[in-house]
Amino acid sequence: MLDPLTLLALGGAGMLAGFVDAIAGGGGMVALPALLSAGIPPVAALATNKMQGIVGTAMAALTYWRRGYIDLKRLLPAVAITFVGSLAGALTVSALDTSLLKVAVPVALIGIALYFLFAPKLSDADKAARLPFAAFVPVMGFAFGFYDGVFGPGTGSFFTIGFVLLFGLGLTRATGSTKALNLVSNLAALVIFIPQGQVLWPVALVMALGQIVGGYIGARTGIRYGARVIRPLVVVVSVALAIRLLVWG
Rank of each mutant, 00 (worst) to 15 (best):
V103K: 14
V229R: 14
M15W: 00
F163I: 12
L96N: 12
F193D: 08
L62K: 04
L8S: 14
F142V: 08
I81C: 02
G25C: 05
G56D: 01
V84S: 07
A104I: 15
T92E: 07
A78K: 00
P153Y: 03
F151Q: 10
G197D: 08
K121C: 07
A9F: 15
V234D: 13
V20R: 04
L75P: 09
P202V: 13
I223K: 07
L62E: 08
V199L: 07
Q198L: 14
S37G: 12
G154S: 05
S157E: 00
A135W: 15
P232E: 09
I161C: 05
Q198N: 11
Q198H: 15
L62C: 13
I23M: 03
L87F: 12
I243R: 06
L190R: 04
K73E: 15
I223P: 03
L131I: 02
L190F: 10
V239L: 14
G210D: 09
L91H: 11
A174G: 09
L169E: 10
I217R: 09
R228P: 11
G28V: 09
W201M: 03
G25S: 08
F19L: 13
G11D: 11
F158H: 06
G53C: 10
A60K: 00
V137D: 08
P33Y: 09
P132E: 05
Q196T: 08
L166Q: 04
V199Y: 09
Y225V: 07
A47E: 00
K102Q: 14
A204L: 10
D71F: 06
F136Y: 10
A143L: 15
M1E: 14
N182A: 10
M1H: 10
D148V: 03
F83I: 05
P41C: 06
V206N: 00
A13D: 09
G197H: 07
A188E: 01
V184L: 04
Q211M: 08
L96V: 12
A60F: 02
V235G: 00
I217Y: 11
I40C: 02
A22H: 02
R74E: 15
L187E: 12
I217T: 09
L183S: 02
R228A: 12
V79S: 11
R67A: 05
S238H: 02
A44G: 13
G197Y: 06
F144K: 09
I161G: 03
K179V: 03
D3L: 11
P4I: 14
I23P: 06
T98R: 11
V105M: 11
R244E: 15
A45D: 03
I112M: 08
